[in-house]
Nucleic acid binder design. Sequence first.
DNA 1: TAGAGTACGTGATGCGGGTCACAGGAACTT
DNA 2: AAGTTCCTGTGACCCGCATCACGTACTCTA
Lengths: 223, 223
Amino acid sequence: MRVDRIFCDLPTSALQSFENIKYATAYPKGAVLFVEGQAPRGIFVLCKGRVKLSICATDGKTLILKIAEPGEVLGLSATVSGKPYELTAETIDPCQVNFVKREDFLRFLKDQPDACFKVAEQLSDKYNNACHEVRSLGLSHSAGEKLAKLLLEWSSKNGEAAKQEPRLKMALTHEEIAQMIGTSRETVTRLFADLKKRQIVQSKGSTLVIRNKAALKLIASNN
Amino acid sequence: MRVDRIFCDLPTSALQSFENIKYATAYPKGAVLFVEGQAPRGIFVLCKGRVKLSICATDGKTLILKIAEPGEVLGLSATVSGKPYELTAETIDPCQVNFVKREDFLRFLKDQPDACFKVAEQLSDKYNNACHEVRSLGLSHSAGEKLAKLLLEWSSKNGEAAKQEPRLKMALTHEEIAQMIGTSRETVTRLFADLKKRQIVQSKGSTLVIRNKAALKLIASNN
DNA sequence: TAGAGTACGTGATGCGGGTCACAGGAACTT
DNA sequence: AAGTTCCTGTGACCCGCATCACGTACTCTA
């Protein structure tokens, strides 16, 4: 039942030393694991619950980069490089987290080459995601396009991938969705209204049904 | 005279094995090292010259992420993770490059824990940069703000950091600058015109003089 | 059951900046 | 010296969407 999957296929000796340095912790909903700009204290392996990762500007404007799910390692790059956390992590569910102090973690990496390689892989993944984010922010123009992409991405995560009329429960407010695609709350509302009018989606209570996946893909790709 | 600085403070045994797997190569100006979407062939350690890193949309719109300088390792994350290159690398000077094949490099990492840690650090740095890019794309609004930031960044790299009237030679066209800050060529032209009219910068031939650094910082920060 | 707080829906308005179109300049070719 | 090609400058136009300013609905607490 290991949830810190990143290290789970390591030799047992390595697993053991990881067990020795980790602190199992629980956080309530709305807790802040770390804030952008802080000196790195260590890594947080998310075992249960979801964590919102965001950056924000001086004027309060916020951009949500992703919602982290169990299995992810948070604060990894800052901890490795020693530079400040580059984003803010805040729980949006009650969470179960394994924390490892920076010094302990660095020592662990020096001692366990296999773990070090795993970390490199993790970091590559994170970099990849960041590049996708850059692409969508820098090249996708219309807000509608980004919303369509987001909906498709969600539907593919929910195990509803295959169905041609995927359902997904909207766990986020319009405000938060707006912060994910870098637009305003009102625009998100209007976009949803438009999608409904065009019969592309349909909302039943708090779940959203994608009635016309093809049309949504058309909006997402290209113009 | 080691230019692949990332590995230069490794034990000599590690250095030696790196020497054995690297291919020293020269590229002319305008050569393409790799293209986004390609399967990773390996890493490119840039020793001399500059390389333009960009992503581009289906419609041809391009975003320049950065201009890599000697000492940087290109294609690292793709090579480590095995996923496709996430961006395109194209030389803009004649370049001297050390190439290492993916399999050789992975074996090298497995054998040399110290190198592996260095790589993790490198990846963290890259991730950091990507986060800054995301921040500037997602939160900085006006094109003017981004241009000001870019100019300040350049002036600080040129050893002209301290001077209060830094000079910098414009090696890029307006078109390329536009692609760096995600705007159109015409907007860049207009922004420069405006900065000149307001006596903030001044151009002498192909070099640009920043006459009012404070004003430029004001534009860059905040609004 | 009233009131407060938070999310949603929608019109009116205005600005940033993308796009088009064209006119000088500068630099390289033959 | 004339032609090509690439860069720069500038005006006109217009569209997406941020912002403001409401009104409505739903939930939570007292």
